[in-house]
């Protein structure tokens, strides 16, 4: 098997995002790591996969990040026709912007002055990963999965978000084939900003519903 594909393109020991990989390459080999190596080698030897396909898939996943979603949100904030298309079919609107989201069935849910949306997957860890990248660890925890559907306001308070009573909370449990992304409300005081400046205000959590965009 060739060296890890990333070694040819990135600093030794650094992920493409510029963060260090967790130091697992020189810690004691675990049973499950041995299984991963064995499964990968057997699938390659039997012709199911190639090392290049595996490397390309890792690169594709690394290239997905909340910045993709932020660009979609910023476009929706500045282009009413795009926003309408996004709310009608978020998959097509994301593809229209050039994002490779694969077969993702995406629904965008809009925050307004009187509605706040929150995304969860109580049964496993469904997440709009093909747009936003892999989910944060807290999204996959028992605490978030259990509580977000019964006491969303209390959970949001733990994230530092206090919602007034007149705002209706809509929780979305990703139980089947759809994935959800929140279209946060455009912050006040951003009238003169362009798309790139606006995108910089959009946080990952604001697209899951556990946060709001930054204020300028």
């Amino acid at each position: 098997m060739p060296h890890d594909h990333h070694d040819h393109f990135h600093h030794e020991g650094m992920s493409p995002s510029g963060h260090p990989y967790r130091a697992d390459n020189d810690t004691p080999l675990t049973y499950w790591q041995r299984m991963e190596i064995a499964v990968r080698e057997l699938l390659v030897e039997k012709g199911h996969l190639t090392p290049a396909e595996i490397a390309a898939q890792i690169e594709a996943m690394d290239a997905r990040s909340p910045a993709n979603g932020a660009a979609v949100v910023a476009r929706a904030w500045t282009d009413p026709a795009f926003k309408a298309r996004l709310l009608e079919n978020a998959s097509e609107a994301s593809r229209e912007m050039g994002f490779d989201i694969g077969p993702l069935n995406l629904i965008a849910v809009e925050n307004t002055a009187d509605t706040h949306n929150l995304i969860v997957c109580t049964l496993c860890s469904c997440y709009p990963r093909n747009l936003l990248g892999l989910p944060p660890d807290w999204y996959k925890t028992r605490a978030y999965r259990s509580r977000a559907v019964r006491e969303p306001r209390t959970v949001l308070r733990e994230f530092g978000l206090e919602l007034p009573d007149h705002v209706t909370v809509r929780v979305h449990d990703s139980t089947a084939d759809m994935r959800y992304v929140v279209l946060p409300a455009r912050p006040e005081g951003t009238e003169g900003m362009d798309e790139a400046q606006l995108a910089a205000l959009v946080t990952r959590d604001s697209m899951i519903g556990t946060g709001l965009p930054h204020r300028p």
Binding site: I107, V149, R150, E151, P152, R153, T154, D165, T168, V169, R170, V171, H172, D173, S174, T175, A176, D177, M178
Partner: peptide, 25 residues
């Protein structure tokens, strides 16, 4: 996509009865 009122799901104990929960069924 089915929308439920929190009051329907959690009864008296609902955090806010008029909040909603959407799920795919």
């Amino acid at each position: 996509r089915v929308r439920f009122r929190m009051a329907e799901i959690w009864g008296e104990g609902a955090e806010n009865p008029d909040d909603t929960l959407d799920a795919e069924i």
